[in-house]
Every structure is written in structure tokens, then in C-alpha cells.
Computed example of a mutant assay.
Amino acid sequence: MISLSKQVAMLSLAGAMAFSGALYAQADSAAMAAGGDAQFVVKASAAGDTEVIASRLAAANAQSAKVKTFAATMVRDHTAANDKLRTIAQKNGFTMAGAATVEQQPDLMKLQSLHGADFDKAYTAMMQKDHQDAVALFNNESSSGQNAALKTFAAQTLPTLQHHLSMAQAL
């Protein structure tokens, strides 16, 4: 049986994810209309938020010390990257997603219900896929973006994302 405090936490996350999904869809629609760099900002910020949310769940639900250490690195690095991206976005008039991706909300809900080795397996798979996608996204922006600040940000962040992918694959 799930404790009352855990039920409240799960309902809070579910409500936040539903609200954030609406925010993401609104930001993504505006970015699609603007194209290129604006879409990169939405996708990159949403991906960073997803990594942070999933990795905070790992602090409570993971069994493996390696997974917990990796998760702490993800929270630190993706929070810092999103802070840098936020500064660039604000200076250049781009809108951040402000939420996890709509596509990943079911994965986050699944992670919330898992514990121990089951959590570790699902979280590791999610981190591998997410970082493959992030490497592709940042590689594309660093080579094809129009905004110089975003191109520089993507190029500077890319090695960290590649390292995260290697770390996730080694878990």
C-alpha cells in the first residue's frame, strides 16, 4: 500500500505534468511557427527539464549507487545548461518550454511508480535514448543554427551531452 504522502506526491507530479504538457504544447507550437533556433530552444529546454525530473526521481527510487551518482550529475549539469540557455533565450526573445516533453510524460509517470532494480533499468534506458536524441539535436544546432549565441551554446554543451551518453551506456 502506498503511503498518503507518496500518493499526494504522485498526484502533484501528475497534475504538474498535465499542466506542463499544455505549456510545452503552447511553446512548441510557437516555436514551430518561428522554426529553427526557436524550435531548438523549446526542444533543448524541455529535454533538460525532463532529465532533471527523471534524475530527481532516481535519488529516491534507484537502487544502484552508480545510477544515483549518475542522476546527481544529470541534475547538476542539465540545470546549469538550462540556466545558460534561459539567459540566451531571454536576451534573444526565444521562449523556453518550461516543462518536460509531452512524449516523455508517460515515461516519467512510469519511473515514478518503479523502485529498485526495475527503476534502474527503466531510467538507464530512458537516459540512453534521451541523450542520443540530445546529441543529435545539439549537433544539428551547432552546425545549422542561425543565432550565433545558440550555435555557440550548442557547440559548448555537445561534449557534455556526449559524455552523458557514454556514462548512460556504461550503467
Rank of each mutant, 00 (worst) to 15 (best):
124 T>W: 01
35 G>A: 12
67 V>A: 09
71 A>F: 00
2 I>E: 14
165 L>Y: 01
88 I>F: 02
96 M>T: 13
98 G>P: 11
170 A>M: 09
157 T>M: 07
90 Q>H: 10
93 G>E: 08
104 Q>C: 01
1 M>Y: 12
116 G>K: 08
99 A>N: 05
53 I>T: 13
78 H>I: 07
170 A>R: 12
109 M>T: 09
139 N>W: 02
8 V>S: 07
56 R>L: 13
146 Q>N: 15
126 M>C: 04
156 Q>C: 00
52 V>L: 05
85 L>R: 09
118 D>S: 12
94 F>W: 07
57 L>I: 05
27 A>W: 00
58 A>Q: 05
18 A>E: 11
152 T>M: 06
25 A>N: 12
154 A>G: 02
92 N>D: 13
157 T>V: 09
77 D>H: 04
84 K>W: 01
61 N>S: 15
126 M>F: 15
103 E>T: 10
112 Q>G: 12
119 F>M: 12
164 H>T: 04
44 A>W: 01
156 Q>E: 14
120 D>H: 07
72 A>F: 01
169 Q>F: 00
44 A>I: 00
69 T>S: 11
170 A>I: 03
158 L>R: 07
62 A>P: 02
99 A>Q: 05
129 K>Q: 11
82 N>G: 07
152 T>Y: 01
104 Q>F: 03
160 T>Q: 13
143 S>A: 13
25 A>S: 15
121 K>H: 13
4 L>R: 10
83 D>V: 06
27 A>C: 10
115 H>L: 08
145 G>H: 11
37 D>G: 01
74 M>H: 02
53 I>E: 10
106 P>V: 07
59 A>F: 12
163 H>M: 14
149 A>K: 06
107 D>E: 12
47 A>S: 14
36 G>E: 10
117 A>L: 12
32 M>K: 15
105 Q>T: 11
131 H>T: 06
47 A>C: 05
163 H>C: 00
148 A>C: 05
109 M>L: 15
124 T>G: 03
2 I>M: 10
115 H>M: 13
161 L>H: 04
87 T>P: 08
35 G>Q: 13
165 L>N: 04
53 I>V: 15
130 D>T: 08
145 G>N: 09
111 L>W: 02
77 D>M: 04
93 G>F: 03
30 A>C: 08
65 A>F: 04
15 G>K: 07
75 V>I: 15
73 T>V: 05
151 K>I: 01
150 L>I: 03
106 P>A: 07
46 A>S: 14
51 E>F: 05
165 L>W: 01
169 Q>G: 09
171 L>C: 04
121 K>C: 06
15 G>L: 08
9 A>P: 02
26 Q>E: 14
137 L>K: 01
45 S>Q: 05
78 H>M: 08
153 F>A: 03
103 E>G: 09
75 V>M: 07
24 Y>E: 05
71 A>K: 02
132 Q>T: 14
49 D>T: 10
83 D>N: 14
149 A>R: 00
49 D>H: 09
118 D>Y: 03
168 A>Y: 01
57 L>W: 00
104 Q>V: 07
37 D>T: 06
24 Y>Q: 02
52 V>S: 03
96 M>R: 11
164 H>W: 01
117 A>Q: 15
51 E>P: 00
96 M>V: 14
6 K>E: 15
81 A>S: 15
25 A>R: 14
52 V>A: 06
96 M>H: 00
3 S>T: 12
147 N>P: 00
157 T>G: 03
